[in-house]
């Protein structure tokens, strides 16, 4: 069940990432949904699942993007492991700590990714911090919303059903 959830989250994130960036091709895409999925899975299931998800998601992303395979895999494995360990050590069950975790993970991931790419491809290391901040905030918002939907969504639907049932009883 957990494996299926992990695979569905990664596959869905990858499909959504390519579809949405296809709509806004070329421009700087202000989100990385695969990274969001990896951080989410690390916080939800711990470092083991996080790093395996990071490896699978990162390698798939590398393979689809063309270029050197392993750069994204390595950085996402590290992020998955670190977020999983930090999530197990500290209380990150509220919205704000989770948001901070997503933002910090995005910053660390992008700097590592760009640094490794510069090292391997021999190009200059010049991260754009304003674009990075936007991506971190979008990733954080998407991640926190996903947590809220998964944790409180079924409960809210149930509550609505009960309210609707009691309303209909009162009327008839």
């Amino acid at each position: 069940m957990k494996t299926a959830a992990v695979l569905a989250a990664l596959g869905g994130a990858l499909a959504l990432q390519t579809t949405l960036s296809g709509i806004m091709v070329g421009g700087i895409v202000p989100f990385n949904l695969v990274l969001v999925a990896v951080v989410y899975l690390s916080l939800a299931y711990g470092p083991m699942t996080g790093m395996l998800a990071g490896t699978a998601g990162g390698l798939a992303q590398d393979a689809l993007a063309g270029g050197i395979v392993g750069v994204g895999g390595l950085t996402k494995t590290l992020i998955g492991f670190l977020v999983g360990v930090l999530g197990a050590q500290f209380i990150v069950s509220n919205t704000l700590p989770r948001l901070l975790m997503f933002i910090a993970a995005t910053f660390v991931h992008e700097l590592l990714f760009k640094g490794l790419q510069a090292l391997v491809a021999g190009r200059g290391f010049a991260p754009q911090y304003s674009a990075l901040l936007v991506q971190a905030l979008v990733n954080g918002t998407v991640g926190v919303t996903a947590f809220l939907l998964v944790e409180r969504g079924p409960e809210a639907v149930q509550r609505r059903r009960v309210r609707r049932a009691s309303f209909s009883k009162r009327r008839f």
Binding site: S21, G22, M24, V25, G26
Partner: peptide, 15 residues
């Protein structure tokens, strides 16, 4: 036809 955008925000590719 363009069927997908860049899977990685760091790489500008299309499918």
């Amino acid at each position: 036809q363009v069927i997908a955008g860049n899977p990685n925000p760091g790489m500008l590719t299309i499918t």
